[in-house]
Write a protein that binds this DNA or RNA. Structure first.
Lengths: 225, 225
DNA sequence: GCAAAAGTGTTGTGACTACACCCATGG
DNA sequence: CCATGGGTGTAGTCACAACACTTTTGC
């Protein structure tokens, strides 16, 4: 069937991570032309016998040297199809939004690029646009799903969760009311175990919390003011 | 560049229309194998020199005999990539969600399929799944954007708007509070002209309303209970 | 004037914000 | 027992659902 002339299909992965209280995406230094040595999103051409998700995982492995694991979340974002987005020829790319809650990777060809710094310097291809779309999607999903748990360990402090929301949505949030709300809609629950050995200086030890559901779940409504 | 083996790329259009107070999608009778004579979504293979949107418009023209016009709205939905979704060979398809507010088309090869009836009979390829995704997207966007105006004329009665919401979301809505809410968030506005010649039997003539914005706009929050 | 259809006003209920207060620990 | 940080309670405000009431027309 592949005697038909068709655009090349690729995937690009926008992998989010929190670093130094900033929302970042992982970029890799390109080893080949075009844009050799520039930092760009990891991407590969999709093979005939693999799904887009398989392609996205392969891009992570081949370009970022990251093996897929259970703390790595991927979902389809959107498809980017501008006629001249790739100088090599017609290529349509499906973006995959990723979140990684595991420890950070230290590879000399990988950088964590702060979202706020991206507008300043332009990335290769249409990667600026792709990232912008991904950030909008992420912000939206933070408001009406429990996707936040993909950034965190299975147990966390309420302070960590609020901090995450502040960083991603880039605004202030009242911790007290936030906790009460998420408890009421049963998005999170308290684990009765108090935390004694966190190396705190003093003060009342915080509760541990966990999400009530492990999968991505839609809340009834936008739960932020 | 097209010496690389790559999946074939296609577009399928899910064109929504209200008919007899039911949410429907337009299907066409396939003229070729596979699934000859079965009803399916209009779709075409994407050409190297056209965008996905251009492909979607071409699908509407070639399969439904509909010329693109200003009352026809199209937006990208999602990309469907199951390995064996097309029996002819690996094909990845980008779905486009469409809404048409113009008069209905009468072509013997076109049918309006009620959404609620679709689960009963299975459609070719993965078109059931595509339509399900499109319906979910549409329902979602009805709740926090003004996408509803793509179904209506520029001026409409509040009763028509409520009826649209009832049909699409498949639930009851209080007209009075609905109007007050949409006026308050300035999604719609009253046109001062009262309507005298609508052929009503009696009763107070209704106001005409219009959307305050012509483009798709996101409201601050989900505006339905 | 009466019925019908549309639009306006009101009221009780529930949810949210802000903030004061209380609790549990280390030193 | 005081300082520190976490957690709980509350009160004023705001928004909303339900529904009664008023307006404007045709006959």
């Amino acid at each position: 069937m592949n005697n038909i002339e068709t655009p090349v299909l690729s995937v690009d992965v926008i992998l989010f991570k929190i670093k130094k209280k900033k929302l970042c995406v992982l970029l890799h230094k390109r080893e080949t032309e075009p844009f050799k040595d520039a930092y760009a999103l990891p991407g590969v051409a999709v093979r005939v016998n693999e799904t887009l998700l398989m392609g996205a995982k392969r891009a992570l492995f081949e370009k970022l040297n990251i093996n897929f694991h259970k703390n790595l979340y991927l979902e389809q974002l959107a498809t980017f199809d501008a006629l001249y987005r790739d100088v090599r020829g017609r290529t349509v790319s499906v973006g995959y939004l990723g979140i990684d809650s595991s420890n950070k990777y230290t590879d000399e060809n990988i950088i964590y690029k702060n979202i706020e710094d991206i507008n300043k310097g332009s990335l290769p291809f249409d990667h600026n646009e792709i990232i912008e779309t991904a950030v909008e999607r992420l912000k939206g999903k933070m408001r009406y799903t429990n996707i936040a748990h993909k950034f965190l360990n299975s147990s966390f402090l309420i302070e960590e969760l609020v901090e995450l929301y502040k960083v991603v949505l880039n605004r202030n949030i009242n911790l007290t009311n936030f906790r009460n709300k998420l408890l009421k809609i049963e998005m999170i629950e308290q684990k009765k175990i108090l935390n004694e050995a966190v190396g705190k200086k003093g003060g009342r030890p915080p509760h541990l919390y966990s999400f009530t559901k492990n999968e991505i779940a839609f809340m009834d409504k936008d739960f932020l003011s």
